[in-house]
Computed example of a mutant assay.
Amino acid sequence: MSRRTATVVRRAPAGAGAPAGVFGLIEGERAGVDALRHPALRAAAFTGSQRGGLTLARIAAERPEPIPFYGELGSVNPVVVTPGAAEGRGTCPGGPAPAGWSGRTIRRRPRPAC
């Protein structure tokens, strides 16, 4: 999850009346392991490598009181831009990829000339 997405997600529970701190983004291996071992943590989610996720899942399961662990391990998340959406934003489908793009482009029709 990006820092920008985390900022948006952090606001949602607060807007619904949830207590502060119900969601947080933790970055870094040591910080993640320390948080996962903290007795106040009641569940954890992770998006990243298989190796890292399996390690964290094991830590969550081996706690004195195991907690739920939700992992998205080793995947590449799809980004879909419809021709209409791209047209409305002044970009060309199949054009230059956004910064950080790690996926592939799938097209149903030949790329339009832009």
Rank of each mutant, 00 (worst) to 15 (best):
M1W: 04
M1I: 08
M1L: 10
S2M: 00
S2L: 01
R3P: 06
T5H: 10
T7V: 04
T7D: 09
V8M: 07
V9S: 02
V9P: 07
P13I: 03
A14F: 07
G15S: 10
A16L: 15
A16C: 14
G17Y: 11
G17F: 05
A18E: 11
A20V: 12
G21T: 00
V22A: 14
V22D: 03
F23Q: 02
F23C: 00
L25D: 10
L25P: 11
E27G: 06
E27F: 01
G28Q: 07
G28V: 11
R30Y: 10
G32Q: 11
G32L: 04
G32E: 11
G32H: 12
V33Q: 10
D34S: 12
A35N: 08
A35C: 13
L36A: 15
L36K: 06
L36C: 10
R37H: 10
H38M: 01
P39Q: 11
P39I: 03
A40P: 04
A40L: 08
A40V: 04
L41I: 15
L41N: 13
L41M: 07
R42L: 07
R42D: 05
A44K: 01
A45M: 02
F46V: 05
T47Y: 14
T47I: 15
G48N: 10
Q50N: 15
G52P: 02
G53C: 09
L54P: 00
T55K: 13
A57F: 01
R58N: 14
I59K: 03
A60M: 00
A60E: 01
A61I: 02
P66H: 07
I67V: 15
I67W: 00
I67M: 02
P68T: 09
P68M: 05
F69K: 07
F69G: 14
Y70E: 01
G71M: 02
E72W: 01
E72T: 09
L73Q: 11
G74Q: 01
S75N: 08
V76A: 04
V76C: 06
V76Y: 02
N77H: 09
N77L: 04
V79R: 00
V80C: 08
V80Y: 13
V80L: 15
V80M: 09
V80H: 04
V81M: 08
V81T: 05
V81Q: 04
P83N: 12
P83H: 11
P83I: 05
G84V: 13
G84W: 13
A85R: 10
A86Q: 11
E87L: 14
E87S: 14
G88V: 00
R89T: 03
G90M: 10
G90S: 09
G90L: 07
T91Y: 10
T91F: 14
T91A: 13
C92I: 01
C92D: 06
P93G: 01
P93R: 06
P93L: 02
G94Y: 14
G95L: 04
G95D: 05
G95H: 08
G95C: 05
A97Y: 08
A99T: 05
A99F: 03
W101F: 15
G103Y: 00
T105Q: 12
I106M: 09
R107T: 12
R107P: 03
R108Y: 02
R108H: 14
R109H: 15
P110G: 12
P110M: 04
P110H: 11
R111V: 12
R111K: 14
R111Y: 02
P112H: 08
A113K: 09
A113D: 15
C114S: 12
C114V: 07
